[in-house]
Amino acid sequence: MLKIRNLDASIGDTQILRGLSLNVNAGEVHAIMGPNGSGKSTLAQVIAGHDDYVVTGGSITFKGEDLVPLAPEARAREGIFLGFQYPVEIPGVNNAYLLKAAVNAKRKHQGLGEIDAFEFLKLAREKMTMLDMDPKFLHRGVNQGFSGGEKKRNEILQMAMLEPELAILDETDSGLDIDALKAVAGGINALRDPARAIILVTHYQRLLDYVEPDHIHVLSEGRIVRSGDKSLAHELEDKGYEWLQDIASAG
């Protein structure tokens, strides 16, 4: 589904990704781990299409199509979703409005009509119950005054409503207490599907206790230095990232 080959990406004059390659197939859950500054969030933003990041080499294809020239909104409509590490507060735009606009943008792209208002509300309430979110959040400004945990649940709510083919969740576990972590993990697990791929970008293995990945990749200095199954997460926890940096500089 997602094929990344020898990807180089920079922000300004600083190169961050250096020859990164990654293959993600439908039905798989991948975890991208690594120390701060290793390029994890950059990878997430480059896949989503952030203007500040420039692809200087290599390729990214999604369902066989070159992703690089596509605008962020086009990528979203193709089925890519980015869950933000720091979800943006948008006072004056209520959550329901954003959800509906997002759902309808995708439906329009698929040649479908706008979602029925009743059906939309029913669906949103259903997903909110699953995420243990108060329905009143639907009518508040997007992320406005939300706690850290509420913002992350809201990201998962958007993902659940949009049903993306590829979801990239950037540090979705950071700043969550155990209840919120469980609710968010529940939301992610509910979306696991043979037709869908999920990439979890995370610094810690904590989330991986609740969402079991099929593959774990360790990023260091802009490329993947080690891949393995879920046992790699425990190894990392025992030995720390420094161990990997030694491997990276040796290799």
């Binding site: 962020p72 909104e73 979800p87 943006v88 606009a101």
Partner: peptide, 25 residues
């Protein structure tokens, strides 16, 4: 807010629509 525009775009909303939504908001 460019970050807010980007956020809306990652939800499938056109840049021009995102600007309109934020100005209206």
């Amino acid at each position: 807010d460019e970050q807010a525009i980007y956020y809306l775009r990652t939800r499938g909303i056109d840049e021009s629509a995102a600007r309109r939504i934020l100005t209206g908001a």
